[in-house]
């Protein structure tokens, strides 16, 4: 498989309404948000953290990002009150890898939601009807990587059920013949 030259840079991507990549002023999620690659997880222990760095200049040259996390543009006016990965306790990788199209539905009773994080509650409320991880991310406007972690948390707590897409492991996760036939038949009936 070919990884494009910049294939491992998950950081320069934002779900924000205004893409901040170009002017450096509106990138609310300037952290790696796609934990689908092979960088090892580096715990954010003592030492310099992206949160501690001084505000970036508002105008930044457009250049390929290296792995160094971008300094937080603290002066930007549309920053969320809580930075996305604060919801996840600084974790950038879920305990297990959820597919972007993995389906999630809530199994929790309302009383079980008491005391959960607001983000967890929002996900549970959304997933009373089955939703993919991608939809959770888009509908709740949280970065995909954060959505993956939060959903994995909920699954671990037994509050949601996850249906990972079927795939033929011997074929690198590609859908098997039966699934392809079902998809084809379904498309023809549309």
């Amino acid at each position: 498989m070919a990884t494009p030259p910049d294939g491992s840079h998950a950081g320069n991507w934002s779900y924000g309404p205004a893409q901040g990549r170009h002017d450096g002023s509106a990138n609310p999620y300037g952290y790696p948000s796609v934990p689908g690659h092979q960088q090892p997880y580096v715990p954010q222990g003592p030492g310099p953290s992206p949160y501690d760095q001084p505000a970036a200049p508002r105008i930044q040259p457009v250049q390929p990002q290296r792995r160094t996390p971008e300094p937080a543009p603290a002066g930007a006016s549309n920053n969320p009150l809580v930075r996305p990965y604060a919801m996840t306790g600084g974790r950038t990788r879920p305990r297990y890898q959820l597919a972007i199209e993995a389906l999630v539905h809530t199994t929790a009773q309302p009383h079980q939601m008491q005391g959960q994080l607001p983000e967890h509650q929002r996900i549970c409320n959304l997933c009373r009807e089955i939703k993919s991880v991608a939809e959770i991310s888009a509908l709740l406007t949280i970065p995909l990587g954060v959505a993956r972690i939060l959903v994995a948390d909920l699954a671990e707590a037994g509050l949601v059920a996850i249906h990972q897409p079927g795939g033929d492991e011997s074929a690198g996760g590609q859908p098997d013949v039966t699934l392809l036939e079902r998809v084809l038949s379904g498309l023809r009936k549309l």
Binding site: M1, T3, P4, D6, G7, W13, A99, I100, E101, G172
Partner: peptide, 15 residues
């Protein structure tokens, strides 16, 4: 091109 890193994430499991 500069958003290609997303593609690898999508390929696995794709039809």
């Amino acid at each position: 091109d500069r958003f290609w890193f997303m593609w690898d994430d999508l390929v696995r499991g794709a039809i």
